[in-house]
Design a protein around this nucleic acid. Sequence first.
DNA 1: CTTATAATTAGATATATATTAAATTAGATG
DNA 2: CATCTAATTTAATATATATCTAATTATAAG
Lengths: 203, 203
Amino acid sequence: MQLDKIVAYHKALADPTRIKILILLAEGELNGQVLAEKLFVTPATITHHAAKLRAASLIHERREKNTIYFSLNHYFINAYGTATANIIYKNANQLPEGEDHPMEDHNQKLKQSVISNFFTAAGRLQHIPAQLKKKLIVLEHMIGGLEPGRSYTEKEINEFIKQYHDDFATIRREFIMHQFMSRENGIYTMNPLEMWMKWETLK
Amino acid sequence: MQLDKIVAYHKALADPTRIKILILLAEGELNGQVLAEKLFVTPATITHHAAKLRAASLIHERREKNTIYFSLNHYFINAYGTATANIIYKNANQLPEGEDHPMEDHNQKLKQSVISNFFTAAGRLQHIPAQLKKKLIVLEHMIGGLEPGRSYTEKEINEFIKQYHDDFATIRREFIMHQFMSRENGIYTMNPLEMWMKWETLK
DNA sequence: CTTATAATTAGATATATATTAAATTAGATG
DNA sequence: CATCTAATTTAATATATATCTAATTATAAG
């Protein structure tokens, strides 16, 4: 049920240690040991929180030898124009509160250029970018056309994607793979984090 | 500290019973006894949750004789274009998930007309509306100019308000009174709910 | 195979919180 | 003042969760 998802999402952000972890990760990826040191907790505690953040799709993980590096979900970073993310970001960089981070501007420009390069004037997707970062921008752009908070049948999702590109099956799979959406019993819903980003970009 | 506020805000929405209360209140105001019946809990439990929702500015209360009627914070209702609010609203009205509620459209139109009636083309506020609902729309419009998540000194707030109207003291007081902002040691910050709305209306 | 490092798991503890029943308070009315 | 109703408070309980220590697992390297 959708209620559980909303609750789980808010629970993930309802703990000071987890917010602090996100603030630290806003500076760049860190492994568990380092996070533990900086927050004066044990690695076991980091594991505990990482599980909750992971469940809410707020972080990514990358393994290198026997070290696991945590990073903010790419979208979370890009969405820091929102208030909570703004706070996380500013805290991370010790910037005076009134100033915007140059990254904000840079990300905006990157998005703009990727969107204008991959979509036609009529709004069709010419082809799916091979580069991950660009692909994610393209997926995010398309998912912005869905209504946050409603459920879609597979048929409806296919129709929706076909507005942009004929290969709806690949794109639908990418939506799931990159956690933009989740599927349950053939019903598709946007994930909470993605909804949140959607709110931000809503006019 | 701002961290606590963010955490408290998310905690308020991190409980299924509280989300259900909001869903029920989306249909209209209800008193504690009725809420308790509908949710199969005791009135004491409702009191408990009401305290948390009140602390997060999510509900309003109105006393009539010895009955207290709870209702959604006016702004929460108007913000239901956001995903969580959308879910609350749709659940409340048993609408097919794809359909928008007519109220959404109505509120949008009301806002449009109030804003164009009270502000000049240059964006100055001509006078403060006497009618509560209109006043709230005007306040919401102005607060949209602030950056969510940052702190402002009183001087900065005054300067900000003077863009719109010379009587900054009255408007500043209204911001506090209607819980758009809170003041601590002379530092002003937008309240979490208002931040949330801000995200939604951000371009 | 042994050793080293990072992460996870398991078990224990403490704190927080959701809930209830019972007692109390607040307000209205006779 | 007595009574009624709604709400709150208090105290108790149960569940959840944040944290730690100690044991275990995963991966790499000698």
